[in-house]
């Protein structure tokens, strides 16, 4: 069922008046932004700015204190299960079980997401992330980088149309980082996905995204298109808004 009001066919995400408090600490203080379908948006901000909280709320892992979120014109509060089907999430945590093999982990998530032709899809993705040779090994024996590669395969299993990337580069080498972005751009998810990226790397954010937000102490202090923005300009902009060097 589509929501009326602020619904728009080209809009992937609409966030209005979003707040999140933990006791007396206000992690998000009334956030508003919109993301179009297929758009890539990067969120910069210092530690404690609220980036991870925002990603967790968008992924329906955490409930907001107040505010409204529409994903594909569906209200997140009322259609959480349906919306989760369209979301792929990669964070610094891999969501993988160390006692299960790579195959068992992917099989578990594939079943949870009703992925058709599971074994074929798993073989495709482990080949893509360069982990085919370790498919039957326990994840607990993998290095951090290998686990993160497998986490990317986990996130892509169900061909999500919305990718939430919360510092996905953690533990990844340059090659794996490039592989992640190539997989997202090459239609591995079945369509050009909408991407929301949080990162401390201004260079990577500028390289991969078309629009940027700066989040400081739970508030968006800057929002704009990257256009002809150079890295040095971005560094100055970031320092101006956050008071810290990137």
């Amino acid at each position: 069922m589509e929501e009326s009001g602020s619904a728009s066919p080209s809009r992937a995400i609409t966030v209005h008046g979003l707040t999140k408090s933990f006791g007396n600490h206000h992690a998000l203080k009334g956030i508003d932004f919109e993301v179009s379908r297929g758009e890539s948006v990067v969120i910069f901000g210092p530690n404690g700015a609220g980036k991870t909280t925002l990603i967790k709320i968008l992924a329906t892992i955490m409930n907001p204190s107040s505010g409204r979120i529409l994903v594909d014109n569906l209200d997140l509060k009322d259609h959480a299960i349906k919306i989760r089907r369209s979301i792929g999430i990669v964070t610094h945590q891999t969501f993988l079980y160390g006692n299960l093999t790579a195959r068992e982990n992917l099989e578990f998530y594939a079943r949870m997401y009703d992925v058709p032709d599971r074994q074929k899809r798993i073989r495709e993705l482990v080949a893509l992330v360069g982990m085919a040779h370790r498919l039957n090994d326990r994840v607990g024996t993998f290095s951090r980088g290998m686990q993160q590669r497998l986490s990317i395969a986990r996130a892509l299993l169900h061909r999500p149309s919305l990718m939430l990337l919360d510092e996905p580069e953690t533990g990844l080498d340059q090659e794996a980082n490039a592989m992640l972005w190539e997989a997202l751009r090459s239609g591995e998810t079945g369509t050009t996905p909408t991407i929301i990226l949080t990162t401390h790397s201004l260079e990577r954010g500028l390289e991969q995204c078309s629009r940027l937000l700066i989040l400081v102490q739970g508030q968006i202090t800057f929002e704009g298109s990257k256009q002809a923005l150079k890295l040095d300009d971005l560094k100055r902009l970031y320092r101006h808004h956050t008071g810290v060097n990137a």
Binding site: A59, R84, R85, F95, L96, Y97, G98, N99
Partner: peptide, 18 residues
């Protein structure tokens, strides 16, 4: 505990199930 220690609880909560 396995979910908590390995950070998998959020992965489980992100799955499209109630």
């Amino acid at each position: 505990v396995p979910e908590k220690e390995q950070g998998c609880l959020e992965g489980l909560m992100a799955c499209p199930v109630s």
